[in-house]
Write a protein that binds this DNA or RNA. Structure first.
Lengths: 101, 101
DNA sequence: TAATCAATTCGACAGTTATCGAAATGTCGA
DNA sequence: TCGACATTTCGATAACTGTCGAATTGATTA
């Protein structure tokens, strides 16, 4: 039974998911979002991101959905805010996947 | 003076080139081209690629130009054929760049 | 309750891009 | 020289996508 207490579980990506991640990263603002989430040690909200980058709420929401669908970003809705975190296990699996090429 | 006798020269990618590579890889056929070139130990021709994947010559030429522009693929024209090789130094620099995120 | 705020959804638009047929270019062999 | 071949270029089209205003939803606060 998988548990979130294992920080680096052996995640395996499908070819489709790898492609979805590559597509997601191939857009400047989405890459910037991933970079910012990676550098943050706590979860961020949409407002935090919008304070750093000029982007309309609708556009940010669109990009976050893409990143969530690709599996790179985890979104927890709580009250008014969305808690955004980078799924580091997926990110590491993605990097490991690229190395094998 | 840089020389090709150094297999792992310290290549540094600009943010623009990193994005160009990500965009280039975010297309299934281009990723497959990169994978095939990576696995090949000698240079490949367009015909070799077309023997493995169903793609019109014009489409292949288009994708190769994208990969060349991104800096990932080196193309040498010689007679009838194009010699295609993966630029492994750029590829490694790209991977190293992603790790830093 | 009313106003404010965070975030999402909807709809539309503009720009980009993947695709390929047809034609062109250049090369090699018969 | 002539025909076959590898590759590129051109032009057109369909599909995709990034963008954002406006409206909506849901939650907090005054």
């Amino acid at each position: 039974m998988p548990s979130e207490s294992e920080p680096t579980a052996p995640v395996v990506l499908s070819a489709a998911q790898r492609m979805a991640i590559l597509k997601a990263l191939g857009e400047p603002r989405r890459l910037e979002i991933v970079e910012r989430l990676s550098q943050a040690d706590h979860s961020s909200a949409c407002t935090d991101l919008r304070a750093c980058m000029p982007i309309a709420p609708a556009t940010l929401s669109h990009h976050l959905k893409e990143l969530e669908t690709a599996g790179l970003v985890h979104i927890t809705r709580e009250g008014k805010y969305a808690h955004l975190t980078l799924r580091r296990d997926i990110w590491q699996a993605f990097l490991a996947d690229l190395q094998k090429i």
